[in-house]
Amino acid sequence: MIWTTWRQLRTQAWVTAVALGALGVALLVSGLSLARSYSSLGLATCGHSCSQAVAAFQAAAGTGLNGVLQTFAGLIVIVVPPLLGVFWGAPLVARELEAGTHRVAWTQSVTRDRWLATKLAVVGASAAGAAGLLSWAVTAWAHHVDTIDAERVAPSVFAARGVVPVAYALFAFVLGVTLGLMIRRTVPAMAATLGIYAALLFTMTQWVRRVLVAPVTLTRALDVEHLGGIGIVPGGTMTIDANTDDLHGWVLSSRVLLPGGQLFHPAVSSTQCGPDTSIDACRQWLTSQHLVQQVLYQPESRFWTLQWHEAGIFAALAVLLAAFCFWWVRRVA
């Protein structure tokens, strides 16, 4: 049964292996060059405090092969799991049902349960392995860049690092198998897999991940000298954009409050802070208000906690879907 499963996966497995191998070589070449820049610029000892070296490193990381990978490596890690779901998962059973070959498979001396278990285990482990290898390679390649940027919890980076891609791949694969089993046609099952996966990942990123672990609330005196910006609508109200660049992590919200806790958005006053007053006078006036900045964020240190939580959720969903498959496969003729 294992041989049969492998034999049927062979073509897809080769295509994936060749593509991953090529990407691996590019990551290795680029990764070595980044590591050389990192050590020659002395960044290992000064972290992100030495701004000139950081700028030089970021320039090196953004040019040539490094730059291309900077743009695409993360994207590849994000699209590979749904592709595995679409091209490995959805056809796995749907193609058999479509061609009628399930009647061949299920009348050999292998029970239907074992047939499904072997398929799920062999192909699922391969999918998880491929995604894991890819994520590991990209995470290792991006190590120095991530150390300097310190924003691995930001949505654009988070899904392309660590263990979540493995869980995504596992989930996408089992989702594909499930839909293939229910829809019984390969192409519609592929489309449904892509649609449902995208919707779920969007939900996760947009609404669930931010509260997966209760975010940190930081309340501190507003630093009037380093504002993100002051917005003035003449004759209207004034909004202050507090600076959050010094906080390493994923900022969910940042508000400026009065000492009493009310939101600060005063009417524009031409005498205190307005189009005609100097910026210094404006700052002086703001200082006199004793304003408070309240930030809700997931700090960079939460990266692994969030990774394991999210990976756990998708792995659990994959297990539930797999159990459903075992129940459903008995109903198919």
Binding site: M1, T4, Q108
Partner: peptide, 9 residues
């Protein structure tokens, strides 16, 4: 080969 791998007899 499929037959050989999936049937003991």
């Amino acid at each position: 080969r499929l037959g050989a791998h999936t049937n003991p007899r």
